[in-house]
Design a protein around this nucleic acid. Structure first.
Lengths: 122, 122
DNA sequence: CTGGATCCTGACGTCGGTGTCAGGTTCACG
DNA sequence: CGTGAACCTGACACCGACGTCAGGATCCAG
């Protein structure tokens, strides 16, 4: 697959794919002329990368995790890192859930004509 | 309260407080010499601002919501905006929860010596 | 009233993932 | 073989929340 097709099917820009490769997150073979060719699972890998980005992992972290993801076997280090990231994500999600509750309280307040609300600072 | 004390108690930098004010998110009075003075609930407001930032709201969005938060009464617009942001947050959290499950699967895979794992691309 | 701690404004730097442009090369269809 | 679409590298721009520095003003305890 050429890079343009991967980009379209994964819903990302060509620029991003080149960037992922530069960061060591995505592999490609090259034609004799130097153009990138991708296998079928490239689209899935890009999806995974995007998802990990969205979870707050950095390129560096994802890169260090890639061997583990490829092999399905982890060194003790990578397992610790994975667990660490999951813990971070857990806390992050918890925080967001608290924020969601707060947003809900605000909405309720904004809907009931209830002047003066100390509750938003709860 | 002086800006330094607010910063310390809220756990943010002085720079951030000035930035929040510049963005119209945080009010302060000024001494005759031009220094900022804050009321007691400034710390709580800063906490709220941080929380909304963490939920992905932009300065502009928070600013437009401030009157509503202060008054406890919303215009139809601000209510819609609040509901919109909550919906966005809901989706975002759902995505993160899917990512968490995926991370859990990876951890499990990394722990069981189970060579070759197509599951990470599920 | 003085001096050290705190504060002021303004401006530029940072980071990370991407957009975008320039100038050139490669691919593939007819 | 020609040609237009797609691709290449390298480089600079951007955004948004904040760090950081300079040069100066203000505050307040002693």
């Amino acid at each position: 697959m050429r890079i343009g097709e991967v980009a379209e099917r994964a819903g990302v820009s060509v620029r991003s794919l080149r960037y992922y490769e530069q960061q060591g997150l995505l592999e490609s073979t090259r034609t004799s002329g130097g153009q990138r060719r991708y296998g079928e699972d490239a689209v899935s890998w890009v999806g995974l990368i995007q998802q990990l980005y969205a979870a707050g992992l950095s390129s560096a972290t994802i890169r260090e995790l890639m061997p583990c993801l490829h092999a399905g076997v982890g060194t003790p280090e990578s397992r610790d890192r994975l667990r660490g990231e999951k813990a971070r994500l857990d806390e992050y999600i918890s925080g967001l859930e608290r924020t969601r509750e707060r947003l809900e309280a605000m909405i309720e307040l904004a809907e009931t004509p209830n002047p003066h609300c100390p509750v938003v600072l709860g």
